[in-house]
Design a protein around this nucleic acid. Structure first.
Lengths: 347, 347
DNA sequence: TGACAGCATGTTTACGTAAACATGACGGCG
DNA sequence: CGCCGTCATGTTTACGTAAACATGCTGTCA
């Protein structure tokens, strides 16, 4: 009960139990232990029992390094990302981890604290040294496009949030369609035009949403107001809201995510504008809290779990096929969830 | 450009480049390659250059499985958790990943989708087979206390969100003190008593917050209203809010997290109760959005980054010391952030 | 009855790396 | 002038596993 787990008295370094130890105790060869350990047939049950007993007694656990060396693969997928703080990323990672686990793969996280060229390069270098069979990149891939940065050869890659579909396998939410639904919803309600608070310039998702917003307005022949630049944070949404509230000719805003929409709600409330009667607001993401904003937020639902799931599927396909998967973009559909933050404009 | 990366025409299995290949090309022994690869001294610069050139040409990457086998460690920390969806967990994990990376360690995530005994057991079994030097458990440790589940021997453990300080190294936010600050703040404002919306029963953090809430009220000789049970979600906070709004003798509520506080705000708003003039609300966590709720939420700030940091520190201490770290609880302080959701009661 | 199939188990080897030890060349100093 | 220390580099070995091959025993059928 007090022992450190090592039976060796005063044992200075815990020597892990190997097959050879089990074999000795069970009085068999280590190959037989291997067969038992891997559930291979051709071991008589009495022998098997003996081996299992020895394993239990010694607390044997297979050494995965040796296994990986032998098999040439690690059963591990690396996930490179910039931040776990955003709802989207953490939910996607969670789905990746869950589905990977179901397939017998573990997930290794490689965070990049500041997305400088150097850091990204460093992460990829580290990645190369890491024990991973494949990599999922949840990040703006164009950060990697300077030519100096190369993904390690022989490592399978799937990318999220990127337009690199011509070179990599890409999985992403259908950003453009989601944004179109949001803007059309507002136009359908009778708004003359729709303002937009963008995500950060560097985000491809943000770019796509902004692009679709602009496209819908143009198609409908509506004036395109200048975009307000945000950075995903509620604070930036709040700042944008203060700007929009000032000359109150804005009746509808599409925020590129729910948190900025929250900032908008707060700014409008502070300035005495009623949502949705004075201004309609639509968000993007459908974070769980969105239904409990005041008023409940109309927003575009993203299926992060599905994105994660498809990433794992694609990456496993690549691993199993052996070759690099063919490039291409796999879009996960979105769906507009209409709640209380949108309404027809006051006449 | 089209090749799979393997120079072998029709090569069916990508054979990774090993030291031996580099050595052959550079015309040296593989040991010299090893020395160059690890930056050891005692290699003349001309030789070094030759080796480096060969590495570049072949795209050599060290095989971490072989390395791990050789060294007996993986430079990897496993993180077992129940969900990444909560702000707290994902921020903690992010901090863990960042600090671990700075120390040359990678993070392997082991998610547990449903916290049944079986799943937890499975995760720990898998853990034993995984390539990790230590484990950080972000979860209710009492799920493991039935005796059937054993952490693999020889693996170092640090636990978050638990009272298992007598058996494991525990790092946690000072839940009790945070809750005390919240409740005292409300009492100091003149509220006769404070209601409480709890976290899930299974959460130790939730239990602690509830316990401290009760203790402060008792110490102050105030009546202790029945707790309302929540599950961290905004929805459960909303449900609690509807209950509290009905017989409006409640002037102050302490919610065990910010999302439930959001639900409360919405319920009160819907019932025409003004926050903070009719009811004061305090949350817990200080999620980034809390400052942009309507009204801005008074809440207890948790330093998740610090929790993650200390986890990594402790775990590395254990790895380096070789022995299991001594049990004990390391508490990270909290701080009350007063915003607009609290005020003195209407006389 | 002998030859051989089938089966349980043992032995050899290779995976890629790096520590430990071995070699050999060169130079300085007694 | 020869001995030895130093330094660059090569050779051997071990890490734990599992495939491939080897062994030896049992039972069956011609």
């Amino acid at each position: 009960m007090e022992r450190g787990g090592s039976g060796v008295p005063g044992g200075r370094r815990k020597q892990r139990v190997s097959m050879a130890d089990v074999a000795k105790l069970a009085g068999v060869s280590s190959q037989t232990v291997s067969r038992v350990s891997n559930g291979h047939p051709g071991v008589i049950s009495s022998t098997r029992e003996q081996v299992l007993a020895a394993m239990r007694e010694l607390g044997y656990r297979p050494n995965s390094a040796a296994r990986a060396l032998r098999y040439g693969q690690f059963n591990t997928i690396g996930v490179i990302l910039f931040s776990l703080s955003s709802t989207g990323n953490s939910r996607t990672v969670e789905a990746i981890a869950t589905h990977a686990a179901a397939e017998g793969y573990a997930i290794t996280l490689i965070p990049i604290d500041v997305p400088t060229q150097d850091n990204v390069l460093g992460a990829f270098t580290r990645m190369g040294e890491l024990a991973v069979d494949a990599v999922i990149v949840i990040m703006e891939i164009h950060l990697l496009d300077t030519g100096t940065v190369q993904l390690p050869p022989g490592v399978h890659v799937v990318v999220v949030d990127s337009d690199a579909g011509d070179r990599y396998s890409v999985v992403d939410t259908d950003q453009a369609d989601g944004a179109r639904q949001a803007v059309r919803h507002l136009l359908d309600l009778g708004h003359r035009t729709v303002w937009h608070v963008t995500g950060p310039q560097a985000s491809f998702a943000g770019q796509r949403r902004a692009h679709a917003w602009r496209a819908v307005l143009r198609e409908a022949g509506r004036p395109v107001p200048p975009a307000l630049y945000g950075d995903w944070s509620a604070e930036s949404g709040y700042a944008a809201g203060l700007v929009l509230a000032d000359p109150p000719d804005c009746t509808a805003v599409f925020a590129a995510n729910d948190q900025m929409a929250l900032g908008l709600l707060r700014a409008f409330h502070e300035r005495g504008l009623s949502v949705p009667y004075d201004v309609s607001v639509v968000g993007f993401d459908d974070i769980p809290d969105a239904a409990f904003f005041v008023p409940p937020l109309t927003t575009v639902h993203q299926d992060f779990a599905e994105v994660g799931h498809r990433c794992v599927q694609k990456v496993l396909e690549q691993i199993r096929a052996g070759g690099g998967g063919q490039p291409g973009t796999d879009l996960v559909p979105t769906r507009l969830v209409v709640r209380g933050s949108t309404a027809a404009p006051r006449c």
